[in-house]
Simulated assay, not measured.
Amino acid sequence: MSGAAKRVATSSINWAKLGERLIPEHAGELSRIKGVSGTFQSAVSQLPADLPKVDFAALKKELPAHAAVLDSLQKQFESIKIPYGEIPAEYAKEIEQWTEYNNARIKLHELKVADGLTEAKKVEEKWAKAPPVEHFDRQHFAEYFPSHFYDLRYENRIPDPCNIGLNETPEIEARFKDYKVLRRADKVDDH
């Protein structure tokens, strides 16, 4: 195995583990990336680890008229250093920012999951204490389905039998806050 192939082999991807973490909708994209990576690895494995050795002294003897050009090429060729695995600083900074953003998203997701679990436990506990549905009466409906059934004895709500949303906004209550029924002269208010 060539040196270049060894470098790529040490940094290879665990495709099985990556496939387990992705959702099924991304299977096509994963297979496409896997194919591109395989093509790249096969091309790299055919290359030598180091640049080929060039005998500039022999070239200068064969082409004495081009000695100045060959000296320039020799300096450029010897100054070539291709580092493997180094990421430019601007890309590294972008990767760090993206990693921080994703870590924050993961933490937020974990918090939402934890909140959802606590809410689900509350609902399960509530329904574990509930009587069988066959024994429900009007009081139970108001207790277990407060969004659909309400008890006007203690709730500050306006009756809304048609579900048009009278209790969702404060306009109705604000408009009729000081509403008083007109009194009739023949009625006595003694009770």
Rank of each mutant, 00 (worst) to 15 (best):
I13F: 03
K60T: 06
S79I: 01
H66G: 03
K177N: 08
E171D: 13
P132T: 10
P146T: 02
D151I: 02
E78R: 06
R32G: 10
Y150S: 13
D189L: 10
P131H: 04
E94G: 07
D55A: 04
W15E: 07
L51P: 00
R138V: 12
S42H: 02
Y150Q: 15
E173F: 06
Q97E: 12
L73E: 12
A5P: 00
W15R: 09
V123G: 00
A43G: 06
L117W: 00
V44P: 00
I33W: 06
A120E: 12
Y84S: 09
T99I: 08
K75Y: 02
C162W: 12
A27Q: 13
W98T: 10
G19L: 01
D160A: 09
S72M: 08
P88V: 09
V36E: 13
G165T: 04
E143G: 04
W127R: 06
V113K: 10
D71C: 01
A16F: 04
K122H: 09
H109S: 13
A89W: 00
E168Q: 15
K6W: 05
I164G: 06
A16L: 07
A4K: 08
L51A: 11
V123I: 14
D189P: 01
V44I: 15
M1T: 11
E100F: 02
V8T: 04
E62T: 14
P48M: 06
A5M: 05
D55L: 00
Q76C: 07
A9E: 11
A9K: 06
A128M: 03
E119K: 15
V188C: 01
E29R: 12
F40W: 08
A65C: 00
F149A: 11
E94K: 14
E94H: 02
P52E: 08
A68C: 02
E173T: 14
Q76R: 14
K107R: 14
P146L: 03
A4C: 12
L63Y: 15
L108M: 09
I87H: 01
F136T: 03
L166P: 02
L30H: 03
A43L: 14
P170D: 13
D186Q: 09
E171N: 09
D71W: 02
Y91T: 07
I106G: 00
I95Y: 10
K60P: 02
P88K: 14
A128C: 02
P24T: 06
W127D: 06
H135S: 15
